[in-house]
């Protein structure tokens, strides 16, 4: 008996040690991400705008991760929310001459309203029904963007969208954009971390773990799914609007299926369900085609292939590296 107890104690101790080392390692990807952003900011050059896109995507993927990684739900249609907010921003600033900040706020508000209306019936669905419903929502948004020419100008798209700025001050330099986007992405990732370690985040994670057990503990599962969907839509909307102001142009292709493919690859590279994963995955994936210039023509195919390989061989992405480190291979 005594021996047994001692062994248990030892086990617990090693578990704690590897636990703290794991926590340290969990920070590592985030630190690398920040280092890349800093390096780019100081180094300058064309990488500045590339990393800026990476940061916008990081926001989009962070939202996706809240809904899918934490809450365990499925959405192939987050691009719809980016599109709604992006077009709203574009139309309000160009056609109606609004300021960027109110247009952006309006875009996110519209996104939330649509997400509420669509999410309420959609989230009663499960598995492949939910997957197909959300995919359809994304495709419908694309169709509307193409067909509603009087507002969206169809395939032509809208150009001349003003850059980010507030009270007459505009961010005109690429570096300025990078700094601002790094700040916003940092806040976005920080908010996700705060949510994860709160009552709300625990309830969301419980829904992913076991809906039956969550309900038995008094958690209103439908409510938390919808809440996670709304938060994810807000992130998507923010990313969609930031994109149009940084690029100055919007067209239906910006928010096509390409965006969904890219976002999922980023999510799986960084590690689904982790806090820093979306940021790291977004920056790595956005830098890849820049590193291999010739690779650009078949980006989508390559992203798809990377995604398949990750799903089969490393379903937890870079996050599984820390397991390799501590000599534990699981799942």
């Amino acid at each position: 008996m005594r021996l047994h107890a001692t062994i248990l104690q030892l086990k617990a101790m090693t578990a704690q040690q590897s636990g703290s080392r794991r926590r340290l390692l969990a920070w590592l990807p985030g630190v690398i991400g920040v280092a890349i952003v800093l390096y780019t900011f100081i180094g300058g050059g064309y990488l500045v705008s590339v990393v800026s896109f990476g940061l916008i995507y990081a926001l989009f993927v962070t939202g996706l991760n809240l809904f899918m990684g934490y809450t365990g739900q499925v959405s192939f249609g987050q691009n719809a929310f980016a599109a709604i907010s992006g077009y709203m921003s574009a139309v309000l600033t160009t056609t109606y001459g609004w300021g960027v900040a109110p247009a952006l706020a309006c875009g996110i508000a519209a996104t939330l309203v649509v997400a509420l209306v669509v999410g309420y019936p959609a989230l009663r669905l499960k598995g492949h029904y939910l997957a197909m419903a959300t995919l359809a929502i994304g495709l419908i948004a694309y169709e509307v963007a193409v067909q509603w020419q009087s507002v969206t100008q169809g395939y032509m798209g809208i150009s001349g969208i003003p850059p980010l700025g507030v009270f007459g001050y505009e961010i005109t330099s690429d570096r300025g954009n990078l700094a601002f986007l790094a700040l916003v992405a940092g806040l976005g990732v920080g908010a996700a971390a705060l949510i994860r370690h709160s009552r709300l985040g625990r309830a969301m994670t419980a829904v992913a773990g076991s809906e039956d057990a969550a309900r038995a503990l008094g958690i209103d599962v439908a409510r938390y799914k919808l809440l996670a969907f709304l938060i994810a839509a807000a992130y998507a909307g923010l990313a969609g609007s930031l994109f149009v102001h940084v690029v100055g142009f919007v067209s239906p292709e910006v928010y096509g299926l390409h965006m969904v493919n890219l976002a999922f690859t980023m999510l799986y590279v960084g590690g689904i369900g982790t806090i820093a994963g979306p940021l790291v995955g977004a920056i790595i994936i956005i830098l890849l085609p820049e590193t291999f210039r010739s690779f650009r023509d078949y980006q989508d195919m390559a992203y798809g292939a990377v995604l398949i390989l990750l799903l089969i061989y490393a379903p937890r992405g870079l996050a599984s590296l820390s397991d390799l480190w501590s000599g534990r291979a699981r799942g």
Partner: peptide, 18 residues
């Protein structure tokens, strides 16, 4: 801690602004 859900409150705003 998840078990404590019922007798605690706090949603999005509490999570973000603590």
């Amino acid at each position: 801690k998840v078990g404590c859900h019922l007798h605690t409150r706090g949603g999005v705003l509490a999570a973000l602004f603590r």
